[in-house]
Design a protein around this nucleic acid. Sequence first.
DNA 1: AGTTTTAAGCTTCATTTATGGTTGATCCAC
DNA 2: GTGGATCAACCATAAATGAAGCTTAAAACT
Lengths: 227, 227
Amino acid sequence: MQANILIVEDDTILANDIAEMITPFASSTIAHDGENGELLGKNGIFDLAILDLMLPQENGYDVLGHWRTEQHLELPILILTAKDTLTDKLRGFNLGADDYLTKPFHREELIARIKALLKRSGLLSDETLLQVADFTIDLNRRTVTYKKQSLQLNGKEFDLLVYFAQNPNVIITKERIFDRLWGFESETALTVVEVYISNLRKKLKTVTADQSIKTLRNVGYLFEVNK
Amino acid sequence: MQANILIVEDDTILANDIAEMITPFASSTIAHDGENGELLGKNGIFDLAILDLMLPQENGYDVLGHWRTEQHLELPILILTAKDTLTDKLRGFNLGADDYLTKPFHREELIARIKALLKRSGLLSDETLLQVADFTIDLNRRTVTYKKQSLQLNGKEFDLLVYFAQNPNVIITKERIFDRLWGFESETALTVVEVYISNLRKKLKTVTADQSIKTLRNVGYLFEVNK
DNA sequence: AGTTTTAAGCTTCATTTATGGTTGATCCAC
DNA sequence: GTGGATCAACCATAAATGAAGCTTAAAACT
């Protein structure tokens, strides 16, 4: 699966420019102000966010803060801004940013930094093996093995497991799963998620006894993995 | 568990300076040239490496290259160097660096970047862990432990404890609890709060004798904690 | 044929309401 | 001021409720 990047940047030209540069390895969505950016990010369907600080409606610090403290989003966040003082940088890092690049910058450096972050989360397309606990997931061949036993998963079941594997030990709401796998605009009923959870659990049960997918009623699902 | 950092830097003063600054959250080992640095890194005992590029014996690019391609070391690597051209940076990232900081730099920024990298690898205590008195509350997994004993709390009980833990030694009125957990507009009767206070107290009693939730009649509740 | 989606019945359990009991502040008679 | 009556605030338990989630199978896509 390709990485999915959120670009929060009010400079339309720059935003489109960035979007264009990352097409070879990621898809992207652009938000032109803080409020929209925060809202989009909340969906939890992005693997990385590029965040400007000086934005209309809501500044980047607030967006970052809300994401990290209210939504507990764990996606890597790269701040891209003209604010170049030490104080600004420290504030960004303290709020939970992963990287901080100041304008003006070389496009190639931005790309390199994005790739470095994606590589860490195992999301860069040349990094095809996702290893979590006893699962080995081959994102290119779309195959799964659990302790050497291979697992036969169909499309959405596979996507679901990948999403869990990319977010182990974090609660994921049913809505997030839905948005990520079906897209916000989908007409499908939200309850499909339950069906796929059920199917996936059944298949996992054929290879392991322990239920790694926990249900937290009224909250979400949790892929529990002991490191 | 403390992080263990390798500093490969020929400037003794700087190396010691860095080592000193990270002592609060990590232990460190210093190598003064590339050859020694590479050798030390090969041990695979480090959680992060800070790597200079211009080094005696063997330059940093080679060290980095060997680590990543021959040893397949996966530790995060931060390049710290005077080489500030785009070409240098790209080369560093292409060889597998995770971050690249150019000299001169602010010590605080280096620390912030190191922490950001460690946080990603789960080696820096996560701030989603809420520690109050003997309680450890994991906001991501919605789990609670009291002195190592785990506590099973359902949705609203957990939310209530979190609210208290975020406001220790402060009086909270019943109305504020209600507004926070149920929302202003809720149709529910205010007395649910009492029910949940009761339930929470009962569950807390299974792990500790002392009543930390005090009632202040006609005023509110108080989560009493001796710091 | 294989995958995705909907539908339907069923189970579970968090939430809410209801009930009766306890506490403790306030008032008043003595 | 002492003792009792009163009353509202609060506690504890339990039952009711209903929404959330599970499972299966059939329908509708591809």
